[in-house]
């Protein structure tokens, strides 16, 4: 589904990504792990086109590196940013409406289905997005992206700053998304969440992939965890 190779990215003269290589297959949950500042968010921003990338990013076999964000989204890449970016003055329903693409046909998700899955959002459908709690905003941001029926969804730090109960809800939603054949690229700092729901994991350090494995192999790789993940 997604194949990234020799990906480099810069902020001004700072060389942030240095030849990142990884792939995500259909229906797979892949986590991108690593400490703050190692380039995980820059990686997903390069894929969606928010940061100008150098190298190759192939999505469903087609090169998307350097294409405009809206075009990449149209090809089926969904992105949920770290700060959620809920439109504060628009209602929950309007926020969800914004996720629908103009020429969308039979989507995997409908608004009524989303409201069924998240009664909290249904109850507050006509309330401004800005007054929702952090957990509700995260749900809304993820559901808004789902309304656009992506084939792959990239989610940046979905559980950051949220209560354990909400983290649990989000984990369940991620598994539900994957069960419908949507690939997930998860940027996550909470190791326990990533270990529990991921099929495969990549660990990043200094703008490169330093480890590739499965939750089972990473659990055994004490050296990798202490060198690149644990604080």
């Amino acid at each position: 589904m997604l194949e990234v190779s020799a990906l480099n990215a810069y902020y001004g003269k700072s060389h942030i990504l240095r030849g990142v290589e990884f792939n995500v297959k259909a229906g797979e949950i892949v986590s991108l792990l690593g400490r703050n500042g190692v380039g995980r968010s820059t990686t997903v921003k390069s894929i969606i086109g928010e940061v100008s990338p150098q190298g190759s990013i192939k999505f469903k076999g087609e090169e998307i590196a350097g294409r405009p964000s809206f075009e990449i989204a149209h090809r089926g890449v969904g992105y949920v940013p770290e700060n959620r970016e809920v439109f504060p003055t628009l209602t929950v329903r309007q926020n969800l409406m914004l996720g629908i693409k103009n020429d969308q046909k039979k989507p995997r998700w409908t608004m009524s289905e989303i409201f069924e899955m998240f009664p909290n959002l249904a109850e507050r459908a006509d309330v401004s997005g800005g007054v929702l709690s952090g957990g509700e905003q995260q749900m809304l941001s993820m559901c808004r992206t789902l309304m656009g029926d992506p084939d792959m969804i990239m989610i940046d730090e979905p559980t950051e700053g949220l209560a354990p109960k909400v983290v649990e809800q989000i984990s369940r939603l991620l598994e539900e998304i994957a069960s419908r054949g949507v690939a997930i690229l998860l940027v996550e700092q909470k190791l326990n969440v990533a270990l529990r729901i991921s099929h495969r994991l990549y660990v990043m350090g200094h703008g490169q992939i330093v480890y590739e494995g499965t939750p089972a192999t990473l659990k055994l790789a004490d050296e990798i965890r202490s060198e690149w993940l644990e604080v």
């Binding site: 928010e50 989204a73 992206t145």
Partner: peptide, 8 residues
């Protein structure tokens, strides 16, 4: 940016 990322 967010609106562009949603495909608009």
């Amino acid at each position: 940016h967010t609106v562009a990322n949603l495909g608009h």
